[in-house]
């Protein structure tokens, strides 16, 4: 008797299970452990992806130094002081102290102690690690900025850098820093003041410094944004707008270098077009 119904029961059970699986996400939308649309990295790594992304940035920085970890070198891709080596005339070879211990001495002879800096086309060697840093954690703004820096300044590919920063803006819609980077790129490399002003306007709308010390970084950024907005307004002859920017800068960040520069710029007679910030 039971054997007669085995197959239909099994089929009905399978159908029920499949239908249950199909309608579960609709019935419990937003209450299931995995959020819809979450990327694979987020699912696999969770918050650890930020750590992984930072590790990839460090790796890119090591590659910038010829594969050597050099925390004592002020030049690099990681950190707020990120800048290429040649700009500050910094000595390229740091002689390491000679160890007295024979084993450590031998180690120092086998493993490279000095470092050098990646320049020109060699900078493409940094890209795989920077790409991985951007992809593992899309909220790592520094990864986007460093990658754009390498593409724009070192490899002379400003359009690729622009595409990357636009992607960064799309992935981080509330971040002002990446908008500022985009504006600077559009202004300096692409010579596109309209696109630059759009980016700085967007950055101005997103930059809301918190009161007290917590908002210091945002206030510094605001100073830069207002300077660029004032400068661009003056360039297109909109002096009222430029003066309004200066007034806002005076009110929000009176001691910022950008505010001083903007004040100087507005006092001076209108200079030639090449007078860039």
């Amino acid at each position: 008797m039971m054997q007669r119904f085995d197959l239909p029961v099994l089929a009905a059970g399978a159908l029920l299970t499949l239908a249950w699986g199909r309608f579960m996400p609709d019935l419990f939308a937003g209450r299931l452990p995995q959020a819809a649309g979450e990327d694979v990295m987020a699912m696999l790594l969770g918050d650890a992806r930020h750590v992984l992304s930072t590790a990839m940035m460090t790796k890119a920085d090591d590659y910038f130094h010829g594969g050597v970890q050099h925390s004592d070198c002020a030049c690099g891709l990681v950190g707020s002081e990120a800048r290429p080596h040649a700009e500050d005339g910094h000595e390229q070879d740091h002689a390491a102290p000679i160890p007295r211990d024979p084993l450590a001495w031998l180690n120092a002879r086998v493993h490279v102690q000095a470092h050098r800096h990646t320049e020109g086309e060699d900078a493409r060697e940094l890209l795989p690690w920077l790409w991985a840093a951007c992809r593992t954690s899309p909220s790592n703004i520094q990864a986007f900025e460093s990658s754009a820096y390498v593409l724009e300044r070192m490899l002379k590919r400003p359009l690729d850098a622009l595409a990357l920063l636009e992607e960064g803006v799309r992935l981080n819609p509330s971040n002002a820093t990446i908008e500022v980077s985009l504006g600077e790129l559009a202004l300096h490399s692409l010579k596109d003041p309209v696109r630059a002003e759009q980016a700085f306007e967007a950055a101005r709308a997103k930059c809301r410094p918190a009161p007290g010390e917590a908002g210091d970084d945002d206030r510094f950024l605001l100073g830069r944004i207002l300077f660029y907005l004032g400068y661009l307004a003056r360039q297109r002859g909109d002096l009222d707008r430029a003066v309004a920017c200066l007034a806002e800068a005076d009110a929000q960040v009176p001691d910022h270098a950008g505010t001083r520069n903007l004040r100087k710029l507005l006092r001076a007679p209108r200079a030639k077009e090449s007078d860039q910030p």
């Binding site: 493409r124 795989p128 490899l155 990357l164």
Partner: peptide, 13 residues
């Protein structure tokens, strides 16, 4: 065959 950001030529990685 990986080309990060559409740029080829990286080999050290």
């Amino acid at each position: 065959f990986f080309e990060p950001f559409g740029v080829s030529g990286a080999s050290r990685y």
